[in-house]
Design a protein around this nucleic acid. Structure first.
Lengths: 203, 203, 203, 203
DNA sequence: AATGAATGAGTCTTCATTCAT
DNA sequence: CATGAATGAAGACTCATTCAT
């Protein structure tokens, strides 16, 4: 579930959801452009369409905004991954399909991923833990897909490492675009990575 | 050569080198702890062992410190990688040796790598370009090692992607230690990665 | 109208006018005492009756304060000169009246004039041009008064120079008080200057 | 005599004179460009051709430089005025000659005069008094010239005011060049001022 | 006498946060 | 609930001055 722990002066839950949606959208757009530290709360308020006073009705500190943003991004990635994975017919082809889909999602969410990579460490420990747990969950989803599609082929640990590698390779497509996207199209990148993967799995 | 582009009020080149060394050391220690944005110039000066005025005799802006730090870190990684790679007997075993050594270097420089990942984007475009070029250079070194050790096995592009993957996996060992180092020792991590790698290369 | 070009974070126009009034008053008082460069923004804020943060809600840079001050002073002089000049019965006596009135105004605004003389050059070119134009306007007002009251007596150029001389003599009464006010009362100064003026005009 | 009151660590009087000459020249050049407050002691040292350490061997504080500069400028004006005035044949024509010459000097020393006008008030009281006394002396020289050339025509006080007016008009030629030099050449300015002067003296 | 590296008090400016309306 | 003016702690950077060499 999306985070609820952040205190509010406002009672109306629907309103809170709405305002936070605006806020997250505005903030992401700004964080993409200038990063968390260089973005001011005033700018966030403005971009979100309300006043600085109103902003503080829905959060307690600036860091809350970052938390909300991180949470929202992870949630989005997770949902899209989840939709892809709920496959009924486990097979290698299915795994390939899942991986490819994951890379496409990562391609579409490049900027968001960059935010995560750079700013998560600005969160205080508890919030960071909360967010990183979501990342663990996602890696786990990949791992489950691997295990399901390739039973008896890999040890738990191998599956885990593989899931991690895939997960990272997806993120890096956006994070290291300055080097990767100069030399590869998304398609060739995906194809080649999948090919490496498969051949490493063949006995 | 380490970067010289940053303006100084001081003329004595040796002194500049010495003071900057102090500065970089102090700054890295602080950046590890609290990141670039949360570290003040005064703290950097103090940690470096001189006054704020002296700090500014050797740099122009706070960002210069970050640049110096990034430059120094890359340089260090590059040097260690270079030392490892200059092998005379190209072979698969040699490649494995290089890769393993690279992982060890990354293990020893975890904190520094984290700084790079999080703060490089805080540099202005030209400085960022300069630093990222160093990263490209390093990936290239790995690629050359691959091509040399495995001639006729891979296309240029394949070698490049492989180099990238290895490079990233090394970095991630430190960057994602919260997930990886909970489940793997350095040794098992390295072994398994190398194993995946090799099997993907076997014809 | 008084200058509006300076950016504000505050929207309420009335409040802006009020706060700027406070600010100008406070700043003039400080500039009189220690000059622009030796006055800190904090002092200006305090003297104006609000915090440093509030000060910066109404200006962008310290120089803005100087501009506001210069503008306000010129505006005040101009207004008082304007009130005096709108005469319906042009005559030598009327001119004399205007000149004498101008000297009185200059006497009352000695300190302000000193500020202008010393600090206008600290403004950046565009602001300086804007302010100096006001001075040209005022000289022109005097020139018009001369031409109107003494038609056919002087060439344009002569009138202009005369206007300049009068203008300067007025300002110098305050600016050079350390020499003039030791030897003259305002009254004798004015009388004598007017007398020189008249006799130089007599054919 | 040029000022001697400023303390020095150096003994060699000739050297002091030489270094101060360099210093004054350098400082004037800088003050013309950016004013006293915006010029740093480092810049002064550099422009003077020696190090910051050496600069402080010949002065005690930055204000000392300003004092030296002001003193030097006044001394220069005074000397040139003095040279002109020592006339043996007092007459109206002689007075006219002196006045015209004074205007020419002022034309040649415009920038220096501007410095004086703007910065003298930055001196502390005693230094300021010392410098302003020089100005009084010069006005007095003009007054003496007037009285000598036009005996029995004017009262002391009238002569004094006249001297002041002339003195100021000379200074203003440079100080207000943005308005005067747009409309007058030096020649017409001088001619017209003299003409006004004379006609005001004719009985 | 000359040098220039070191110092740190002082300056302008920003921005997260509060609170009266 | 919404607004936006007010606050002041904190931060980057400058520069006059000193002093060891």
């Amino acid at each position: 579930m999306t985070e609820n722990r952040i205190e509010t002066s406002v009672k109306d839950q629907e309103l809170i959801a709405k305002r936070r949606q605006q806020m997250i959208k505005g903030a992401i757009s700004l964080f993409k452009e200038k990063g968390f530290h260089r973005t001011t709360t005033r700018e966030i308020a403005k971009e979100s369409g309300f006043s600085i006073g109103t902003l503080y009705e829905y959060i307690r500190t600036k860091e809350d905004v970052l938390f909300l943003v991180c949470d929202a991004i992870y949630e989005q990635v997770r949902k899209r991954l989840e939709d892809t994975i709920q496959s009924d017919s486990p097979s290698i082809d299915n795994l390939i399909f899942v991986v490819k889909k994951y890379f496409v999602v990562m391609d579409e969410m490049q900027e968001e991923v960059i935010i995560m990579y750079q700013e998560v460490k600005s969160l205080k420990k508890p919030a960071q833990d909360y967010v990183l747990q979501k990342e663990r969950d996602m890696v786990n989803m990949l791992k489950e897909a691997i295990v399901t599609c390739l039973p008896d082929t890999l040890t738990e640990l191998d599956a885990e490492l593989l899931a991690n590698n895939i997960f990272i390779q997806g993120q890096m497509w956006g994070f290291r675009r300055w080097i990767l996207q100069k030399r590869f199209t998304l398609e060739t990148y995906v194809d080649k990575q999948v090919q490496f993967l498969l051949s490493s799995l063949a006995k």
